[in-house]
Amino acid sequence: MLNKSLSILLATCAMALVLSACDKKEADVAVVEETVEVVALPPAGSPPAEWKKYLAAVVMQNMQGVKSNRPYMYFVPGGTDGKAEVDRSNQLDNVSLAVARGVLPGNMLAFGGPESATTANLILDAFIDAGDGSFKDVTVLFVGSQADNERVKEALARTGATYKFAEMK
């Protein structure tokens, strides 16, 4: 009789823990959804840190349908000085390598920077050798201007990627 009572007590405690954990997860999701920060578009000439913060906020606002909670974010620096050109070249190498290796379905690649055309050009260059259908179920987010939207969308169409566009504003 004591063993049966003890078993019932342990089962009841375990069930209470499971139910309390479920409530906590739902509460955590609600808190995360409420804390998505809205960040204003940085003015021209702002430091890269402000642009990266803006890009991260826009990415968080566009995570619907993405299974992975860790998007690959690529900041594309603007400017014509030597450092910016080297940084863009390095970023193109990084993205091209990721494209060549492939990205698992359910992930997101996000691109943005202060110069929409420069960001669009990097995406086009990085995906030029991507195979047809090689990005099926992978989301690619381009944060840029409407003027560059269509050319990026068209270039990515053959890869099978789920394309998302967020206008810089």
Rank of each mutant, 00 (worst) to 15 (best):
D81T: 09
L19R: 03
K24G: 06
D137Q: 14
K153S: 15
L10Q: 10
S134I: 06
R70F: 01
K24C: 05
F165G: 12
L6G: 02
G79H: 02
G144W: 09
N149M: 14
R88K: 11
C13M: 09
L109K: 05
M1F: 10
G65R: 02
V95Q: 01
P105D: 05
L92P: 04
G113N: 04
E85T: 09
D148N: 15
N62D: 13
A130G: 06
N3T: 12
L17P: 00
S134V: 08
N90S: 10
F111M: 11
P105W: 00
G65T: 01
V66T: 08
A155E: 13
Q146G: 11
P43W: 00
G78K: 03
T80S: 11
G102D: 03
A126E: 05
N121E: 14
L97I: 02
W51D: 02
G45W: 05
A84D: 03
T119V: 14
L124S: 05
F75C: 03
E150K: 15
L104P: 02
E154R: 13
M1W: 02
G106S: 05
C13G: 04
T139C: 01
K25S: 10
Q146S: 15
A110F: 03
D93S: 14
V18R: 04
V32A: 14
A14P: 01
S5P: 01
K169Q: 15
T162K: 10
S20W: 11
E167P: 15
K25I: 13
D132H: 06
K153Q: 14
E85L: 15
D148T: 09
G160C: 05
L19G: 07
W51K: 02
A30L: 13
A49L: 07
K67I: 08
G45Q: 04
E34H: 12
G45Y: 06
A27W: 12
A155S: 15
G144C: 09
G78L: 02
G113H: 04
